[in-house]
Design a protein around this nucleic acid. Structure first.
Length: 635
RNA sequence: GCCGAUGUGGCUCAGUGGCAGAGCAGCUGAUUCGUAAUCAGCAGGUCGCCGGUUCAAGUCCGGCCAUCGGCUCCA
């Protein structure tokens, strides 16, 4: 017998060789139905695994992310099986579960089109109906290589060759289909229910540009049709929050063919932008920053000195002036260096925190442009901090605090990544180690969790990145803190120390918003265009019900303007419902509806964009209410 | 840059080789109305661009550009 301890602390005895599914069945038929995968003695274990030793068991349902991953992973095998049936010459690459679904990469002479989706889905459903068990087989490296070589599955062969010497090589088979796979899987294909193929994409084998491009099919699956429908509905809703759509609908910005990647900001977008910049200046003043502005175009010689010529050239735009070569700045730092060098600096001045809202241009590949999130011209809310080596940790922590101050104000969840030395970089191994450790120490002292991106740093130093999410949960790097020992060296920056000698300062590059453009994109999606009142391009719209109240409406509007509230009025001869509808669609925080009653009583009827009609009140009361909301930057 | 898809009025979209359409938005007029769409009329298009096939191309073919979804890359 084996003794199995369950999560609730209870223990059950079973004959040796009992499967997890049988255990689940014994506990409750519903659990057996809903369980996707087990965790037995800490190991993710398939439900049809037989148990020969005592242990702790936790049965996971789809709602658990690990279980969902297994479920999707099994789904990807079924998709591969269907594709192999339909196009037998197709070679298989990899097919993992991802956040909300799964994909499989194929190499096929057949070019998949969305029209194939129905066909593949139909075949997948047939495979599910056949209810093939997922059978695990372990075999030696030689056997595995031999098997996949014979099948001409070149990608699988490559994968096996790259597995560590001591790795267990396992296959999973369902029906006629066999795939190299570590597992585990659901017990059988019949466990899978609601599947949908989502999209096609090209993807380089192993993500390397010089490798062949494979055809990737993205799909998702759920244990219930209703869950799939709900997911699809959410996707539709998310599309309505897309900043590119809202940018047009709300008149914030536009990008046209005449300037791919070069956004135009329209009057309403500029109001939003200016509010963000005002707030930025205020906070940076408080945090001890000075502000500078450096030129957009600077000489080739400068970029050679900074290292950009060698390390960043393919991202830069160039121009010629009087036969001299110039570059349009892709970063603000060299300009900052020049400003620092205009004066001699004492150690007593440090740290010098020098901010710049700097417009940079970068040549991004055409395929990566994406609304305001990925553009070719953007404004970085940059700053360069020049400091003593012993000030490094405190300064980094100061920036981390500032980032948190900004992101919490908007209610943005974010995650942090640490990027280390890339291949194409400047400086000594020692400098990089000191710099990287300083970033790690600051993160640790702040108690911030982070993931590491090996080799993803800037060419001059390692960095801490802050990532925010868009409406589809894609993440975008916004804030970043980069520690740099190289630029001060290249530009021979110095300060006079206590000893009267020249010393080398250390430098931080940092941004909070990252790029104002990207941040506005994130902001728009986060609030679905309903910006907090302090940011809203238009804060109040006054709408009289009939012409009888036009005078009163203009009077109210004038008073609000006098109070620096952004207000307009809708005097068209439309029904009030029509005006309200437009006001709501424009996501204006407050609509003031003025009829005879209000005019008579000298009040305004207030409609809040989310709370709806909140009743009439004296204008003065409304003004103090909205001013409080604006001053507090309330969400 | 690479893979795939898409490109028709300001917006959303119909139009499968034979006279370029609809709804919304816009303009004009009527309507004066109480919390998400009043009615009527008018105007608006080199069908992304260039070339080809054809008696005839929005439609078929080729090239380019842009956009969308990915890959790679990054704020």
């Amino acid at each position: 017998m084996v003794s199995i301890s369950l999560k609730d602390g209870s223990q059950r005895e079973y004959p040796k060789g009992v499967t997890l599914l049988q255990v689940a069945q014994d506990i409750s038929p519903r659990l057996a139905k809903n369980a996707v995968i087990g965790v037995f003695n800490g190991e993710l274990t398939g439900l049809n695994t037989m148990i020969y030793e005592d242990g702790d068991l936790d049965l996971l349902m789809f709602e658990d992310q690990q279980a969902a991953d297994v479920y999707r992973h099994s789904s990807s095998h079924v998709m591969a099986q269907a594709v192999k049936r339909l196009w037998p010459e197709t070679k298989l690459a990899i097919g993992p579960a991802i956040d909300r679904g799964f994909y499989y990469d194929f190499d096929s002479s057949h070019t998949f089109t969305p029209e194939d989706f129905a066909l593949i889905e139909k075949e997948m459903n047939a495979i599910i109906k056949a209810d093939y068990p997922f059978v695990r087989k372990e075999l030696s490296r030689e056997e595995a290589l031999d098997y996949f070589s014979k099948q001409d599955e070149v990608y699988k062969v490559e994968l096996i060759q790259d597995l560590p010497e001591d790795a267990t090589i396992s296959l999973y088979q369902q029906g006629e289909f066999v795939d190299l796979c570590a597992g585990p899987h659901v017990p059988s294909t019949g466990k899978l229910k609601a599947l949908k193929l989502m999209s096609l994409a090209g993807a380089y084998w192993r993500g390397r540009e010089d490798n062949p491009m494979l055809q990737r099919i993205y799909a998702t699956s759920f244990p219930k049709k209703s869950m799939l429908d709900e997911y699809l509905h959410k996707l539709e809703e998310a599309k309505k929050r897309d900043h590119r759509r809202l940018g047009r609908e709300l008149g914030l910005f536009t990008i046209v063919e005449e300037g791919p990647g070069f956004p135009f900001f329209m009057p309403k977008g500029m109001i939003l932008r200016n509010e963000l910049e005002n707030f930025w200046r205020e906070e940076h003043r408080k945090a001890g920053y000075q502000e500078v502005r450096t030129p957009i175009i600077l000489s080739r010689e400068l970029w050679e000195r900074s290292g950009h010529w060698d390390h960043y050239q393919e991202n830069m735009y160039f121009t010629t002036i009087d036969e001299g070569d110039y570059a349009i700045k892709p970063m603000n730092c060299p300009g900052g260096m020049i400003i620092y060098k205009q004066d001699l600096h004492s150690y007593r001045e440090l740290p010098i925190r020098m901010g710049e809202l700097g417009l940079v241009h970068r040549h991004e590949l055409s395929g990566v442009l994406h609304g305001l999130m990925r553009v070719r011209a953007f404004t970085q809310d940059d700053a360069h901090i020049f400091m003593l080596p012993e000030q490094i940790i405190d300064e980094i922590k100061g920036v981390i605090d500032l980032v948190d101050r900004f992101y919490s104000l908007f209610g943005f969840p974010y995650h942090v990544e640490l990027s280390t030395r890339p291949e194409d970089s400047m400086g000594t191994e020692e400098d990089w180690e000191i710099a990287t450790n300083a970033l790690i120490q600051a993160l640790n002292e702040k108690g911030i969790e982070y993931i590491v991106n090996e080799g993803d740093g800037a060419f001059y130093g390692p960095k801490i990145d802050f990532h925010l999410q868009d409406s589809l949960d894609r993440t975008w790097q916004c804030g970043t803190i980069q520690l740099d020992f190289q630029m001060p060296e290249k530009f021979d920056l110095t300060y006079i120390g206590e000893d009267g000698e020249k010393h080398r300062p250390v430098m931080i590059h940092r941004v909070i918003y990252g790029s104002i453009e990207r941040f506005i994109g994130i902001l728009t999606e986060h609030f679905a265009g309903a910006f907090p009142t302090w940011l809203a391009p238009l804060q109040v719209r006054v709408m009289p019900i009939t012409e009888r109240q036009h005078d009163y409406a203009l009077q109210v509007r004038a008073e609000l303007e006098k109070q620096d509230i952004r207000v307009d009025s809708d005097l068209r001869s439309e029904k009030i419902g029509y005006k309200i509808r437009e006001g709501q669609l424009q996501k204006i925080p407050y609509l003031l509806i003025l009829g005879d009653k209000e005019k008579e009583a000298d009040t305004v009827a207030v409609r809040h964009r989310k709370q709806g009609d909140i009743g009439a009140m004296p204008l003065a009361e409304f003004i103090s209410k909205i001013k409080k909301e604006i001053n507090e930057k309330a969400l």
